[in-house]
Amino acid sequence: MSRTSHALAALAALALTLTGCTSTADDKTLPADLPAAQTLLADGAKAMAEVKSAHFVIDVNGKISGLTLKRAEGDLTQAGSAQGTASIEQFGTAIEAQFVIVGTDLWLKAATGGFQKLPLAAAATVYDPSAILDPNRGVAKLLTSIKTATTKAKETVDGKETYKIQVEPDPVVLAALIPGVGAGVTGDIWLDATSKQLVKGVFTIPAKGSDPAGTVTVTFTKYNDPVTISAP
């Protein structure tokens, strides 16, 4: 496999990841009208475990060591299938690609040429895309591993009433979703006030070596909308 194809394979798998928390930490003093983070995150984990499909967008700002992904957008299912577009930065150049994942197969299509079929295992060391909506491994798992959490506010995000929760994710669990991250990551997540599904997550990645701090933003919409994903 060429270096570009290998990078794109890693990208397509990574593009399906992200985001994100039941909290084991107690809230600090809260305004009377804000629910405790522990309760919200427990409800969020339950809600995310029941999701069958979703539309996602991932945006990476800054240079994050070990993370070449710059942007990804697409649809995915609890069964692990996914399709969409993604962009990585390789040797200072942005590479755009379309991807389709069905079962253990990955198809990639760069700016020129048709789809190239690759084994999904080529990207397994970066991320297992079948995990994102898996109740035992994906977002629901992340939502049960937050080290500390505090409900900060009730805000409107993309027209939805949400609760904003400041979190410190477990670095081991988060590293499976954002390769290259270590300790010290902090973030905010927004859970739908009614459904408790994850609407948005913003994670700040600490500076590392010559790389300054960066952020990874993930948004989810169209929960449980009908999605048909098939091999190209």
Rank of each mutant, 00 (worst) to 15 (best):
M1V: 06
S2F: 02
H6G: 06
L11V: 10
A12L: 02
L14V: 11
L14M: 05
T24K: 14
A25T: 08
D26A: 15
K28H: 11
A32D: 15
L34H: 09
A37S: 15
A37L: 13
Q38P: 04
D43E: 14
G44Q: 02
A45E: 03
V51M: 01
V51R: 00
V51D: 00
S53I: 02
F56G: 01
G62T: 07
S65F: 04
L67Y: 07
L69M: 13
L69V: 11
K70R: 15
D75C: 01
L76D: 00
G80T: 05
Q83A: 12
Q83M: 11
G84E: 05
T85I: 09
S87Y: 12
S87N: 08
I88W: 03
E89T: 14
T93E: 14
T104V: 00
D105L: 03
D105P: 00
K109G: 08
A110N: 14
T112C: 01
G114Y: 12
F115Y: 14
Q116A: 12
L118R: 10
P119R: 05
L120N: 00
A121L: 10
A123S: 13
T125R: 12
V126W: 12
P129F: 09
P129H: 14
I132Y: 11
L133S: 09
D134M: 08
P135D: 09
R137D: 04
G138K: 01
G138Y: 00
G138N: 03
A140E: 05
K141Y: 10
L143I: 02
L143A: 07
S145Q: 15
T148C: 10
A149P: 03
T151D: 04
A153T: 06
K154H: 11
E155H: 06
K160A: 13
E161P: 01
T162S: 12
I165M: 09
Q166M: 06
V167H: 08
V172N: 14
V173H: 15
V173L: 13
V173C: 07
A175R: 10
L177A: 11
G180R: 13
G180F: 09
G184K: 13
L191N: 12
D192K: 09
T194I: 09
T194N: 11
K200G: 01
K200R: 15
V202R: 14
F203K: 05
P206N: 13
A207V: 06
A207G: 11
G209A: 15
G209C: 07
G209F: 09
S210Q: 12
G214Q: 09
T215S: 13
V216F: 14
V216S: 12
T217Q: 13
V218M: 10
V218D: 10
T219I: 10
Y223E: 11
D225G: 03
P226S: 13
T228C: 02
T228E: 15
I229L: 04
I229H: 06
S230F: 00
A231G: 03
